[in-house]
Write a protein that binds this DNA or RNA. Structure first.
Length: 466
RNA sequence: GGCGGCGUAGCCAAGCGGUUAAGGCGAGGGACUGCAAAUCCCUUAUUCCCCGGUUCGAAUCCGGGCGCCGCCUCCA
């Protein structure tokens, strides 16, 4: 599989699982000071799918996503609501896990929290000081950017260019304006930990380095996050990690494009955001996932109610096909007939080919839609409808890593609901035969009000959940 | 200003030197139906922002424009 890496500015090959089965993957997680917005959710969905696709191809993925629970924004939020930073972090960590579930993302292998790694961060900072890459000033510790020759290689910036726009905050004792904070001396009322430099707390850029080293080793196979993290966050991570190890911090750097609203980046500061949970509530998990996967992960994607609605309809369209196909198959295993096998195989190859080529999910979705169309054309041309079940099976299998099209019409219903609905459907069919349309329609309407939608087709009545 | 990206049908969106230029949504026409909704079938880019160039051949490569966006400060 080839993936476009920010550092190389081009595609990098991921060794096949036969060569290297284990993949260490690190994705930058949330700062837990508020619910995540739908733009924050993009990497969590896209890289969740990448992880699951790799697993489906035989890799063993160790997927680490940090939770930043030490941060200015958390402190501010606690002040605003008169609680403690610990309480705020604890609460929004729980809410975050809730959101991940709502988004249909698999839980990461590890979700380390910064607070649990402060000791290790102090050790790392001490090492950096010992090696001459960091220095102490007034209880703060700074990383000396000039001590690391590769600084700027990820973002393509030169120190001189950066200098032009650099600014130093009042009270900072940096030797160079570009130096960044590793350890901050505590101000009154802030969370603090004891350290060789006095009471204080670690800077943001250190936690990912420490936690990824602890859980995945010195070189990550994949490091991913939003492209707004390239500079300074990931640049600063590389500086710390590589200054210490002398080895590449990550083999492949993935940076997803931003979610925009009317062309502008969605962000808390602009106020043009929607909470992820509200969007899921409105359009459903799969519509949200389809929406993200219908656009290449590196490109910007524009959010709008219309776009989500469009995704919802596209998802429903596939489910319509699956429902009819599986009804036609009658629950039995059916082989794919010769006339169809060739086309389906080609589409399957396209599906994998597209994903192997820089994780082209829009192309892969098109392949799935193509399979739906192939099935419809086959049936329309008089082919054995039972064969559609075989196509449905393929679609469900291929789409599993995408977290799409796994819902079974009946599945997930409590108790004997499925059989009871079946009973009503049969009863209504009988009423229709007797031309008792008043009662038949009443059943259809009452079921619709309960979210069970009936659709009469020449092959019988299909029902779906809304 | 520096670095990076983008501009393909009404809208969204693949495409990485030779394909009939995927796919979705919408729209138009038709079929089916007790009705409704839905479904099904067909149609919907001689052309890829503009101008040059390379090539037998370019949406795809090169040069120059124009227009958007991101990063350079916390940010997924």
């Amino acid at each position: 599989m080839r993936l476009w890496s920010t550092l190389e500015r081009g595609p990098v090959e991921l060794p096949p699982p036969e060569e290297k089965k284990r993949v260490g993957m690190y994705v930058c997680g949330p700062t837990v000071y508020d619910y995540i917005h739908i733009g924050n959710a993009r990497p969590f969905i896209v890289f969740d799918v990448l992880r699951r696709y790799l697993e489906s191809r035989g890799y063993e993925v160790v997927y680490v996503q940090n939770i930043t629970d030490i941060d200015d924004k958390i402190i501010n939020r606690a002040r605003e609501e008169g609680s403690s930073p610990e309480e705020v972090a604890e609460r929004f960590t729980r809410e975050y896990l809730e959101d991940l579930r709502a988004l249909g993302a698999k839980l990461p292998t590890y979700q380390p929290r910064a607070r649990a790694y402060v000791d290790k961060m102090i050790e790392l900072i001490e090492e950096l000081i010992a090696k001459g890459h960091a220095y102490v000033a007034d209880g703060d510790v700074y990383f000396s950017v000039r001590s690391f020759p590769g600084y700027g290689k990820l973002s393509g910036k030169s120190l001189d260019d950066l200098l032009a726009g650099a600014r130093v905050e009042l009270g900072e004792a940096k030797r160079d304006p570009l130096d960044f904070t590793l350890w901050k001396a505590a101000k009154p009322g802030e969370p603090k930990w004891p350290s060789p430099w006095g009471l204080g707390r670690p800077g943001w850029h250190t936690e990912c380095v420490v936690m990824s080293r602890e859980l995945l080793g010195e070189t990550l196979d994949i490091h991913a996050g939003g492209n707004d993290l390239i500079f300074p966050h990931h640049e600063n991570e590389i500086a710390q990690a590589e200054a210490l190890s002398g080895k590449p911090f990550a083999r492949i750097w993935l940076h997803n494009g931003m979610l925009t609203v009317k062309g502008e980046k969605m962000s808390k500061s602009l106020g043009n955001f929607y909470y992820a949970r509200d969007v899921v509530e409105l359009y459903g998990t799969e519509a949200v996932r389809y929406f993200y996967l219908s656009r290449h992960w590196r490109k910007p994607l524009d959010f709008s109610p219309e776009a989500l609605e469009e995704a919802r309809k596209a998802v429903e369209g596939v489910y319509e096909f699956l429902a009819e196909a599986e009804l036609a198959g009658g629950g039995k295993e059916v082989a794919l007939p010769e006339e169809l096998a060739g086309e389906v195989r080609l589409l399957e190859e396209k599906f994998h080919g597209d994903l192997e080529d820089d994780f082209n999910t829009p192309g892969a979705l098109a392949a799935l839609q193509g399979m739906v169309n192939a099935g419809k054309r086959f049936a329309a041309a008089g082919g054995d409808r039972r064969a559609l079940a075989a196509i449905a099976q393929r679609i469900r299998k291929l789409a599993a890593p995408l977290g799409l099209f796994q819902r079974r019409g009946p599945a997930g219903l409590p108790g004997k609901a499925e059989e009871i609905i079946g009973l009503l459907v049969d009863l209504r069919a009988e009423l229709r035969r007797e031309r008792n349309f008043r009662l038949a329609d009443a059943i259809r309407e009452k079921l619709a009000a309960l979210g069970v939608e009936l659709r009469d087709t020449p092959q019988g009545t299909v029902w779906t959940l809304r």
